[in-house]
Design a protein around this nucleic acid. Structure first.
Length: 283
DNA sequence: AACGAGGACAACCGCAGAGTT
DNA sequence: AAACTCTGCGGTTGTCCTCGT
């Protein structure tokens, strides 16, 4: 049984958006908010597919979008993130405020790829083009694997039950198969790695910086990570967040001790307890 | 001025995963 | 558990623009 189409294709416009359509979409979302893309076109009086509306809003009309050329910093960040994450454009976009995954993908395909090729670097693997052999074949490969293990175990001491196999896919970069990646946290943080890439949701950048600044100046009380992630559980939590202590968020299955033990080693923006290493797959 | 090649980027398509019934 | 819906993602395509000849 096939899937039903997301919209009636006979009665929808396609192609470039007109100013009128943009205005309709913007004013509708301003008054009703995002979401329910399927019904939005009809409600907003647009002869467009819901997917098309979503794309138009996310990639072009959203007010927080940063237009204009990519800066050198953004350029470098994209390259670094791509070497780690591969073509995970949405994930990369979360680290570049005001940039969309589509924009970054286009930028990568039209600028960065060429730039790397000019430097003699394979944009798919981030390794010199003339370098032969798979990572597994060289000492460099071992280094690569070691660094990924360090990344995976960032800030914590992990008991490495079985080192997972690292395969390099030309399209997707390093792959760590989940069934072979079994780690468990056995102690406090021991590694002090500065990986530069502290991947987290975009809002965390400024918020985290502000929080740390306030903390240092004594204007902010310390909070457990559960509270900082909005997962506060009043029963177990003993941090300074009053809201955290009084709210009975029974919906959360994570205790504050679970989460506070994970402070400092969030990866990909998700607490390691929330995103267990055993299910982490980079591909 | 006309044309073609290549670049830039907006938009579309198909698929997968999560959520719902 | 299965069927279905909705949303988001990544790859690809289409169109417009710029530049060189």
């Amino acid at each position: 049984m096939g899937r039903s189409p997301c919209c009636e294709k006979d009665h929808t416009n396609k192609g470039a958006w007109t100013k009128e359509e943009d205005d309709k979409l913007v004013s509708y979302i301003k008054s009703h908010g995002e979401g329910c893309w399927r019904s939005l076109p009809r409600s907003a009086g647009l002869l467009r597919c819901g997917k098309s509306c979503r794309l138009r809003w996310i990639n072009y009309l959203r007010p927080d979008l940063k237009r204009g050329n990519f800066t050198l910093d953004e350029d470098d960040l994209i390259i670094k993130l791509h070497s780690l994450l591969g073509n995970k454009w949405s994930l990369i976009a979360t680290r570049l405020p005001g940039r969309t995954d589509n924009e970054i993908k286009n930028y990568w395909n039209t600028h960065v790829k060429r730039k790397l090729l000019r430097r003699g670097i394979d944009p798919a693997t981030h390794r010199p083009i003339n370098e032969t052999g798979t990572p597994r074949d060289s000492s460099k490969a071992r280094e690569t694997e070691d660094s990924l293990v360090k990344i995976l175990s960032f800030g914590s001491q992990l008991e490495k039950k079985e080192i997972c196999g690292f395969n390099r896919n030309p399209q997707k970069g390093l792959i760590c198969k989940r069934e072979r990646a079994e780690y468990s946290v056995v102690g406090e943080r021991s590694l002090d790695l500065n990986l530069e890439l502290r991947i987290s949701p975009p809002w965390q950048n400024q918020q985290h910086h502000d929080y740390e600044t306030k903390l240092r100046s004594g204007r902010e009380k310390s909070l457990c990570t559960a509270c900082r992630f909005g997962l506060g559980n009043g029963k177990e939590c003993s941090c300074d967040n009053v809201k955290c202590q009084t709210e009975d968020s029974t919906s959360s299955s994570y205790t504050s001790s679970d989460i506070s033990s994970s402070i400092g080693y969030d990866f990909l923006g998700v607490n390691t307890r929330v995103l267990d290493f055993s299910i982490l797959e980079i591909n």
